Amino acid sequence: KYFGTAKARYDFCARDRSELSLKEGDIIKILNKKGQQGWWRGEIYGRVGWFPANYVEEDYS
């Protein structure tokens, strides 16, 4: 189950295995919004990890 999707506004390079690298334009499935302050958990291309919420724009459609 996921909470919708978000589109990456910027590139983000994961610093460890718990984080999710993003490329601008990627569409991420949002799995959890209750991580550390400002971090969401998501899935993209079969990978799961945490990413900074301010790097994405949530899709409300």
Rank of each mutant, 00 (worst) to 15 (best):
R15H: 08
F12V: 02
D11V: 04
Y2I: 12
R17H: 12
L22I: 14
G4W: 11
E58M: 09
W40F: 08
E24F: 04
R47K: 13
L20F: 01
G49F: 01
Y2T: 11
A14I: 01
I44W: 05
I27Y: 08
L20G: 01
N32G: 12
S18D: 11
Y60K: 11
I44E: 00
A53N: 06
K34N: 15
A6V: 10
G46V: 03
Q37W: 10
R15F: 02
E24Y: 09
W39G: 00
E57A: 13
A6L: 01
N32F: 11
P52N: 03
F12M: 02
S21G: 07
W50K: 05
F51P: 03
Y10Q: 15
A6N: 01
R9Y: 02
C13H: 11
I30L: 08
D26K: 00
F51A: 00
K33M: 02
G49V: 01
K29Y: 09
Y55V: 12
L22W: 01
V48E: 13
I30E: 01
V56G: 05
G4S: 12
K1E: 11
N54Y: 12
E19M: 14
I28Q: 02
L31V: 08
A8M: 03
E19K: 01
F51N: 05
I44H: 13
N54C: 13
I30T: 00
A8Y: 03
G35R: 08
R15A: 06
A6E: 01
G49D: 00
N54F: 06
E19V: 01
N54W: 12
L22S: 01
V56D: 00
G42Q: 00
K33R: 12
D16C: 13
G49E: 01
Y55N: 09
I30A: 05
W50P: 03
G46Q: 08
F51M: 01
D59P: 07
V48P: 03
Y60G: 13
L20S: 02
G49S: 04
L31E: 04
D26W: 02
E58A: 10
I28T: 08
G35W: 04
S61E: 09
L20W: 01
L22Q: 00
Y45P: 10
E58Y: 13
E19Y: 03
R9W: 03
A53E: 10
Q37T: 11
